[in-house]
Design a protein around this nucleic acid. Structure first.
Lengths: 347, 347
DNA sequence: TCAAAAAGTGTGTGCGCACACGCAAAAGTT
DNA sequence: AACTTTTGCGTGTGCGCACACACTTTTTGA
């Protein structure tokens, strides 16, 4: 195993000099610099991460900016992942500082972001729910040289260190397949958005686009119809009844958020064939509906993993100076009653 | 963070004594011993794993006993995972010694196992394909105090340190769901075992049991029939034709191994409804068949992950003296054309 | 021309732990 | 009583790295 000392001996310099070269710190003669780098390359030097973490007493502060888990249980999961990563990396000198905002109040997001910037950490993990309000914040961080990682929502206009999450388009596409698979024509499918500002939520738009594309690309549009529906939280029942009246051959519903459980109670128990349901995420309410057969498939967005990997990526960047891929798509896990157990609490 | 030194100070002894107590090495007065343990408990001492790995210059040898990747591409993947883990861990004192056997020759397994025992490593990772022949080997290891981790095939009669892999029973159960979903009755489904000694392969038996259970537990046996079929590698075509003749309403095939691609070319292109196929694992041949629609679903056994985690678990046990869970089930990943890309080469 | 600043380099210490070594006191032996 | 053995315990070194410090040589500037 190659150590810094080995490089030093081979290059006829001291370990201090090698250290300065490898970390771009201090002053080193250009000639020596190149020689050391070349030898390091040649010997395939890989730093011993244990020794590094042990030797440097440096503490890295990572700020996490995400919605409050209180009102929406979904957000508990990213926080769990973040916490898990912190526990694991604490020994290596990583500490996480949470900044919580209200997912329905733009102002609270702005405020927390400002607080964060006022006490700049070494890196940021952020769920940029509000598209318009995020951009100026990103610009500021960029100017400060503060690396930030996005999760949950992809905002292509910014230049984050990395994005962690699902490909929303492909996710909708997959939902199309799951509703269509083995479903005789003709049939109508509903794309249901629940209690969200659809036009301001990039990832919901992408999901719907993917869903539609499935039917278009497979040339199914002559036999299968897709209907868009926006539900507001307080009139779900009425809207559902009205939709069923208008479209008697609804055979499946694609709920684009984790809120399938909100819609489920208002489906007809029986009526010209059961209505299939595809939704997102393993909230306990959704799990129960999956078990009793109301929901056919859930697509797991692995929110816990998003938080976890976000912190890990930042640590990779900060501590180990590793290259970080700009996009880190998580798999589109298909969950049914039969394989659910292995995704719940998976370590 | 509590260090050994902190305990030493509080107990009025030296770090050497604390070390002896914590590791049960050397001689320590009983009174002092209890005092140190009590203080360690009190202070919630947790050893710094980094420092431990760094400080002890010990080299741990892990033997990996698994089939040759040459004849069956499936086995390349666990070996890849094992190799990956070794690369990652070799800096920290873990080295893997491969023992390769022929998956069709019981004798070669026995021979390699004997060689392994003759040059005992610190831990073993093994894919116990041959049920009967594995048991005595395990007994020997147990007697030697040699910790071993199982992967791929679970053998409940033994007491391994851990098992890494899928729940085969539930895996078959899930396959039942995937073939049945949206498939009108009546229909016949085939459970196809390809070129394996079925009766000596514990996990294939379990898969078939799970598959059958799906139809029983859901009370579908009056409308759906399940047929068991053993294929030998050199007569697949003839056997398939004969089966199609006997069971004209075959609507789906469950291939219990990664060899769906062997069967696929011999399915009728059209004939009273397409025949669905569910198989295992993302071999390139299977991926192509998934893409062109011949295979509907693949269940990913994550063979690479099995190898990887197996080595990691052993390292956890050997180096860090961590507790290792006796069973580590990997998720039953459902793969379709639409989400395949996110599982291939997922780091 | 000579001091001051900058450039270039080596040495030493500490991180927390494992482990070898060595010394003193107690217990055992003839 | 004069030993040997055993028991009990402290000290010291090294693992690979980060980083502070100090030292020498070169360059700069008035």
């Amino acid at each position: 195993m190659v150590r810094i000392k080995d490089i030093a001996v081979k290059a006829n310099v001291s370990v201090g000099t090698v250290d300065r070269v490898l970390h771009n710190r201090g002053r080193v003669a250009e000639e020596v610099r190149r020689k050391v780098l070349q030898i390091a390359q040649e010997l395939q030097y890989e730093p011993n991460l244990l020794a590094r973490a042990l030797g440097s007493n440096r503490l890295y502060r990572v700020a996490a900016l995400a919605p409050d888990a209180g009102p929406d249980p979904y957000w508990q999961q990213p926080w769990d992942g973040i916490r898990k990563a912190e526990t694991q990396l604490k020994r290596y000198g990583i500490r996480v500082e949470p900044y919580v905002f209200n997912q329905h109040e733009v102002e609270s997001f702005r405020k927390q972001a400002a607080m964060l910037s006022g006490n700049p950490p070494d890196g940021v993990l952020v769920a940029p729910l509000f598209y318009r309000e995020s951009l100026p914040v990103f610009q500021e961080w960029q100017k400060m040289g503060l690396p930030y990682v996005l999760f949950n929502t992809q905002i292509t206009e910014s230049q984050p260190l990395s994005f962690i999450g699902q490909d929303s388009y492909q996710s909708g596409f997959l939902a199309g397949k799951l509703l269509h698979y083995g479903q005789p024509a003709p049939a109508t499918f509903l794309v249901a958005h629940i209690a969200e500002d659809f036009t301001n939520s990039a990832h919901l738009i992408r999901k719907e686009q993917g869903f539609l594309s499935y039917f278009e690309q497979n040339k199914l549009t002559d036999r299968y119809t897709v209907v868009h529906a926006d539900f507001s939280a307080d009139a779900v029942k009425e809207q559902m009844q009205s939709l069923l009246w208008q479209h008697p051959v609804i055979r499946g519903i694609f709920v684009t958020t984790s809120k399938a459980y909100v819609l489920a109670p208002h489906l007809p128990v029986i009526g010209g064939g059961r209505i299939r349901m595809v939704g997102y995420d393993l909230l306990t309410q959704n799990q129960a509906l999956l078990q009793d057969g109301t929901i056919d498939f859930l697509i797991n967005q692995n929110p816990k993993g998003q938080g976890y990997w976000g912190v890990v990526r930042l640590a990779d960047h900060l501590m180990y100076k590793k290259e970080v891929a700009p996009i880190h798509y998580l798999p589109l896990d298909i969950i049914t009653k039969e394989n659910l157990q292995y995704y719940v609490d998976g370590e």
